[in-house]
Design a protein around this nucleic acid. Structure first.
Lengths: 217, 217
DNA sequence: CTAATGTTTTTTGTATACAATATCTATTGA
DNA sequence: TCAATAGATATTGTATACAAAAAACATTAG
């Protein structure tokens, strides 16, 4: 049954702004002026306010009453806290994905990794981060746990937005992504979980090591 | 420095509605009519819409464009998925709380458990659930990981709201809560983590056992 | 009697208006 | 010259108005 899906403006604006944060067009700390954005997006302030409310609730935006909304900037400690949570959750997602994954989904992940291979060669950092986000989020979607997906989407957006540069050499990530995909293809839950755990732990450790100088970029 | 904190109406309405969901005044599946609620809360629809947007983003409310907003009802499978996530996260929170906890915080938890003791005797299910929520959320606050707190607040509200009755005898919960508090008082991270894991796992298992008849209440 | 159609009412989505507050700029006083 | 004050401007919070769509109700046709 074909069903017409209507999407209200608030939802469209929310998605647009979230993508602008993911792509780096909106930076942490940047003030979001309602009138400016409303004009730029061609809507009134009303749907924009709802979108802000959603983004604020999702911790991507911070609204200070009567002073305005800002793309939220995270402290290093907060980013580490996020990694602590990711370390608990992404292995769970990978474990589940190994159970549920379909051949179409395998093909999609393979396609993403081909693009990641290329971006690793060309050292295109922006693309590396975007594909990394998509790869991880695809696995969370395959896990069939909607709330897990939602939460990790938030965290991964925060990490992309707040961490300049990469937390490990892309060749290493590339290799780990491939190993992870192999485990998923082989329906090996235990291995998928273990690889994902190592993959995220590594990054957390590197984040800790860079806690003082990483702001210098 | 004393600082005047202004809270906009949208935030007040959000908190009010969230509390109405926690207390059971608003039930899963219940339609939230904007005009009615606006009148009842004494505000215009504008802050109410922002509050809805926040609640929807938090997964407590489901808004269907052009049709309205409903307190979100979760399927049994979704509740199990939530437990899977809780099992990963609450032990992390307990482990951290054992590190950070202060004597004042110990006293607060002790006070909550005294109330839980009483409610266990009187079989006051509503109070048991409310104190359980407060006890768990206090531990997450003590963990000093804000995002962890926020996420678990959502999950625990969903569980209170969607699960009628209790998932284990209150005497058992009471006992486990006390053991947990002892571990926290003793700054024993490992033990706190272990106890919390068992505590939540038990409940998850009982939820699974009740998957078919639990809707009959 | 039931299903289809038409009409009325209710609700939602959004733009706009207005008031309050914060921020910025200009002026004044020490 | 710097700090304080006043005035202008910009922004935010909220109520209200209006249009569109959905829901409810009434009427008609088979």
């Amino acid at each position: 049954m074909y069903k017409v899906e209507f999407e209200d403006l608030a939802t469209k604006v929310y998605k647009t702004l979230k993508n602008m944060i993911i792509s780096g067009e909106l930076k942490p700390g940047e003030k979001l002026i309602q009138e400016d954005l409303a004009e730029r997006l061609g809507v009134s302030r009303t749907p924009l306010l709802s979108a802000f409310a959603k983004l604020a609730q999702e911790n991507l935006v911070e609204t200070i009453s009567r002073r305005g909304a800002y793309v939220k900037r995270f402290t290093e400690q907060e980013l580490v806290d996020i990694y602590d949570i990711r370390i608990q959750l992404e292995p769970l997602g990978a474990e589940r994905a190994a159970v549920y994954i379909t051949t179409e989904e395998v093909a999609q992940l393979e396609h993403l990794l081909k693009e990641y291979d290329v971006a690793t060669q060309t050292k295109d950092m922006h693309t590396l981060k975007q594909i990394d986000y998509q790869f991880h989020m695809s696995i969370m979607r395959i896990s069939r746990n909607r709330l897990l997906y939602d939460m990790l989407s938030t965290f991964n957006v925060i990490i992309i937005s707040n961490i300049k540069g990469l937390l490990k050499p892309p060749e290493k990530s590339d290799s780990e992504h491939h190993q992870l995909l192999d485990a998923l293809k082989g329906k090996n839950s235990f291995e998928a979980r273990r690889i994902m755990y190592e993959h995220i732990s590594d990054s957390r450790d590197n984040l800790l090591k860079h806690l003082i100088p990483f702001d210098s970029e």
